[in-house]
Design a protein around this nucleic acid. Structure first.
Lengths: 204, 204, 204, 204
DNA sequence: CATGAATGAGCTTTCATTCAT
DNA sequence: CATGAATGAAAGCTCATTCAT
């Protein structure tokens, strides 16, 4: 029998943490990180502002945990896709689909990531945001280049422009996506891919 | 030489206002409205925080003027396009091109609009943001529907999804666009349109 | 000895509020509302300016609570007098006596009321000041008229002028009254009434 | 013909000064000294805030001039009365009448004096306010004492209380007095004196 | 004389954070 | 674990005042 390390308290601490982080993420997403007061989060969680500091070191450490948890999960998915040895078109399809799944699961975190990562990344503590973004860029750019090389994608497009186009196109969806909708993430992904890959104009 | 009496100072009054608004817009775009302090804007403008209040009523009235000026100009362009009686595909092309021109001219304002309009629109003073957005939606949705009807666009796409796709695709560009680049707005518009209309996959 | 567990600190919550309001009232009365800084009140209360905002919403809400509390108590007393069915002279005597009692208990609030009510009343929030003043006028004017009618008061005086005379005469006392004096409020009231009713000239 | 010293400008400088001071006095009286902004006075005078500083050193010097001018005139009148060798009752009558005349001529200044003199007197510059008040007290108290001694006034009254009563009674009138009324200052004085000297109760 | 623009001190208020209970 | 009360830094804004033109 393993020794009961730490806390005999029944109320599983990590559960509470996650609940609180979900609450915080929702508020951050809705109002923006800076505009969100710790009091507001506490209100939403049914406690007083000061009480949050039992669970977290600071407001900053809350976003930190929200974002890093999200990115960890995101990369779990991405890495699996990238390791699967698919062709460029299939890789893009899988990455986009995976992205919409993440938006579905972590809508708030994604929204926060979109709005705040640029200025958060300035702080050393959030260095992983920059790292992630670079890894991200490498994965997408590489796949696009591979696709152009093997003829899956058109050769006449500016590759960086295309990268930005596809990237933004996907993630901005977090700003309007509502999980209660009738579109599953896979369904939305399929439609997006259809537009991105084949265009909206009718083919003759 | 008797020319140019008076005012070696460049700052005729309305000029100064515009200068200051440009400065403010740049900072708002870079740091976000809430995170931007009035002191920071003043620093950038080479004056003290209090001095800004000689020119503007409040921080809020600064964004207000920035956004409303931008939207006025935007709609001048859009209305001209919409009144031109073009076909759906040409209308989309013209709107997208016009949009990139606006991004070129008002990059900061567009970035602010993207990031802040959602929560600013909550205040009555910024009601015109909502109005503009509705007019915008109507123009784009209408054009897309027309295009589907007359066979210019594919009939198998979710029209609202497509609207969001095209809309986001264009405006998000403001977040990375730098006017000093080697791409003219028209050039970028052409590339974007090529992707949006015909897709990135190679046609057989 | 088991008695008096907990809280050697006197400050049960509502007590603290009252303490702070007393402090604030004293400063407002001494320096005027506008001229009083929140910092000054906080100093006097032994805390930092920001800390006051844990207890009160704003400087304005402090005067609000000070004045409304005072007026509530004042009208408790006045209403009792007016409901007692006394003759006009006795009513005036009772109102004046009651007034001096209020000056005794709420000297600071009365002084604030005197100095600030006129411009505070302009704001909707302080509408009750105007209401109170109208009720006040009605009560006094009515009593004076009754007194003239039944012969208790001289018929040859301008009734509005008399009203102002008596009203001011009483309340201005708040500007110099110091409760630690040797005059009880009742004593002062008696003297005032003697002057107001019978005049300062010797009767033949 | 005396040489035109200083300024050939037609617009008699001292006139302008007086106009501006009247304007300032009116605003100070209406809003209180602290609450009055220099901008407001300038607005009312049809100029910009900075321009006032051509005429006056500071906001403070404006009240200073307003109050000292008023007090100079007041004491001209008072001194004449006191030097006239009247009996106590006649002296009181004359002082009260003179006071109402001053209220008529300098309503704004009197109102300012009432509201602000206490805290202005704290500054050395306004030392004359304290002096004036002491001279004032001496004149009134002395007259009242004389009146009690020679039987003109009742002997059973607290003399200081009586002093305050009469003093306040007169000056507070400035807070409601409007010169455009149908009551001349002499008429109001007569009524006040009637109340103060003989009381408002009917004599048998 | 007046304007336009700026200064700088100080004000009210907000808010993340701390900590004894 | 949570509360109540406080801290302290910083924010937006106001205003008397200055001064070159």
């Amino acid at each position: 029998m393993p020794t009961a390390k730490k806390k005999t308290t029944v109320s599983a601490t990590p559960e509470r943490r996650r609940e609180l982080l979900n609450t915080a993420a929702e508020v951050f997403a809705a109002q923006g990180y800076n505009a969100t007061t710790v009091r507001r989060i506490a209100d939403e969680a049914g406690m007083l502002a000061g009480s949050l500091y039992y669970h977290f070191d600071s407001k900053e450490s809350m976003v930190d945990e929200i974002l890093s948890t999200f990115l960890t999960e995101l990369w779990d998915g991405y890495d699996a896709v990238l390791a699967a040895g698919l062709g460029p078109r299939e890789t893009i399809e899988a990455l986009v689909t995976e992205s919409f799944r993440e938006i579905d699961r972590h809508r708030a975190a994604v929204a926060i990531y979109q709005k705040e990562s640029k200025h958060l990344a300035a702080q050393p503590r959030f260095g992983y945001l920059t790292e992630s973004q670079q890894k991200f860029e490498k994965a997408w750019l590489g796949t696009l280049e591979r696709g152009v090389a093997d003829g899956a994608f058109r050769a006449d497009l500016d590759i960086r422009l295309t990268y930005r186009f596809v990237r933004d196109t996907v993630w901005v969806a977090a700003s309007w996506y509502r999980p209660d909708g009738h579109h599953s993430p896979e369904e939305i992904a399929r439609q997006y891919l259809s537009m991105v890959l084949d265009g909206i104009a009718r083919r003759d």
